[in-house]
């Protein structure tokens, strides 16, 4: 780990004023400290934001939307009874990620900013355009079975590893930020960038800009009785997704009146295709319909290496998540959250 200066501001404005090129904000540290140990990240200054006031609460705003402060820990959000009832697939995604210890430390804002699990990004001795612009990409001729099948470029084929962001994307979440230029809202759909020719520009955040909170709109609770997160991984627990899907439906008189579907593990951002949602409107839920929606959701998917299997896997995961959502949100958190195994995973 490189040497760095440590500062612990006590207000948001002091934190932003302390930012300088090469500085990093520290939340739970589960990703940042890990990458500092490998040498992939070498911040000159670490700005500890964990004591900032007013950004560690879950609150309902007068307009009915839900605001979650950036310092709320994954475990606290997943197990908040009111939140889990209103947004069950968000709670399930959180509970399916990492381990009990990591969920106790990891923060909401940090989850949005967690870096790719691409081994060549994490290894400072490998070529990586994301870590070092223009360096090249060792993943193109390396282990690529867990890389992107959508939205990738020759410069970068990495995926976004977040579980949380997948249901947040499906529910039209908004990111509240504050930076040197003041406060603003960024739609989560616009928050993570596809790599294009500049994969190092990972998010819409400007230098020094800090996430303050995430907001979920009031109508995002309407699908709470029919929503699921499903995550396919190489082992049942404590593993990142190969592919995942968040599915939320509203049913009226046996027909679908609203549908949301987002995919994880397939691209550098959570993947959402409005046409796939639209074709389900007014229809009777069923396996054929969900298969067709999944086909549309994966339109344009191309392997970026040894990962052609992920295209079919993502289709099946999307279709099954929709079927699970149609069958109804489980009354309690499944023993194995978001797993394809266990009682709650059958339809």
């Amino acid at each position: 780990m490189n040497l760095f200066d440590y500062i612990r501001p006590t207000s948001v404005s002091d934190a932003i004023a302390a930012w300088q090129p090469g500085a990093a904000y520290l939340g739970g540290g589960t990703n940042l400290v890990d990458l500092m140990k490998t040498g992939a990240l070498r911040p000159g200054t670490v700005i500890d934001i964990t004591r900032l006031p007013g950004v560690d609460r879950i609150e309902t705003l007068p307009n009915g939307s839900t605001r979650i402060g950036t310092l709320v820990r994954n475990s606290d959000l997943a197990h908040d009874p009111d939140f889990a009832m209103a947004f069950p697939m968000v709670a399930e995604a959180l509970a399916s990620g990492a381990s009990g210890q990591l969920r106790n430390a990891a923060t909401l804002g940090g989850n949005l900013l967690q870096r790719t699990r691409c081994a060549y990004f994490q290894d400072p001795h490998s070529a990586c355009n994301r870590r070092f612009p223009g360096a090249g990409c060792d993943a193109r001729n390396g282990d690529s079975d867990n890389h992107a099948i959508l939205g990738w470029s020759d410069a970068c084929t990495a995926t976004n590893p977040s579980d949380l962001c997948v249901p947040l994307m499906a529910l039209d979440a908004v990111v509240e930020t504050q930076g040197p230029q003041g406060k603003r809202d960024i739609a989560l759909a616009d928050f993570h960038h596809l790599p294009g020719a500049a994969p190092h520009q990972e998010t819409a955040l400007e230098p020094g800009e800090l996430i303050l909170a995430i907001r979920l709109p009031a109508n995002a609770t309407a699908s709470r009785h029919n929503s699921r997160y499903l995550k396919v991984r190489e082992r049942t627990s404590f593993a990142f997704a190969l592919v995942s899907a968040a599915a939320a439906l509203q049913l009226e008189n046996g027909r679908i009146s609203a549908a949301c579907l987002a995919l994880g593990g397939v691209a550098a951002k959570p993947w959402r295709v409005p046409a796939a949602e639209k074709l389900m409107l007014g229809q009777i839920p069923g396996a054929d319909l969900f298969r067709r929606a999944a086909e549309v959701a994966l339109e344009g998917a191309v392997p970026s290496g040894d990962n052609g299997f992920k295209i079919d896997l993502a289709r099946r995961t999307a279709a099954r998540a929709l079927a699970l959502a149609a069958a109804g949100t489980p009354a309690q958190m499944p023993a194995l959250p978001a797993s394809v195994f266990g009682e709650s995973a059958h339809v």
Binding site: Y6, R8, L26, G29, T30, V33, D34, V46, D48, T50, S75, G100, Q101, L102, N104, A105
Partner: peptide
């Protein structure tokens, strides 16, 4: 694993200065 303020965490990823 240790408990910090009653919660289990990985002490290897926690900077003491915090």
């Amino acid at each position: 694993t240790v408990l910090i303020d009653g919660r289990r965490i990985n002490s290897c990823l926690t900077l003491a200065v915090t």
